[in-house]
């Protein structure tokens, strides 16, 4: 399973890529693989204020439905509209084209609650 170095991870299999005050978030390669072919992405509302660990949005695949939990607290400032017409982007490119939203980070301290790539790899090893 592909894990991207330099990103932060949650144990619910979301990632966050932090650049300054902005975090780009999505789901991991492991998560997309578990869900199978994504068929629908319910995008979050721009402007939505969210706490770490709260439900950011919902995903549907052929045989499953799943919630995406926000890796960090903050405000949703951008969403990936391309997913509306092509939810399969998450399957094809979970860490790049398949990003879900950008969040303006409220509290940088919260990254302490997230895992590094190596820690996440470790978790996958355990949960396998």
């Amino acid at each position: 399973m592909n894990v991207r170095q330099g990103y932060f991870y949650t144990k619910e299999h979301e990632w966050a890529k932090i650049e300054g005050k902005i975090a780009k978030v999505g789901i991991t390669d492991y998560a997309q693989h578990k869900l199978g072919d994504l068929t629908y992405v319910e995008l979050p509302q721009i402007g939505k204020v969210i706490k770490q660990g709260e439900v950011l949005n919902g995903l549907e695949s052929v045989k499953a439905a799943s919630d995406v939990y926000s890796p960090l607290s903050g405000k949703v400032i951008k969403v990936n509209n391309a997913l509306e017409n092509d939810p399969g982007l998450i399957n094809k490119s979970p860490y790049d084209d398949g990003w879900i939203a950008e969040i303006e980070i409220q509290n940088e301290e919260e990254t302490k609650n997230l895992m590094s790539a190596d820690e996440y790899l470790n978790l996958l090893g355990q949960s396998k």
């Binding site: 068929t39 629908y40 549907e60 695949s61 052929v62 045989k63 499953a64 439905a65």
Partner: peptide, 13 residues
């Protein structure tokens, strides 16, 4: 199709 809305997948939701 659209089975992800249904009880056998989403249960109480």
């Amino acid at each position: 199709t659209l089975q992800a809305r249904e009880q056998h997948i989403r249960r109480e939701k």
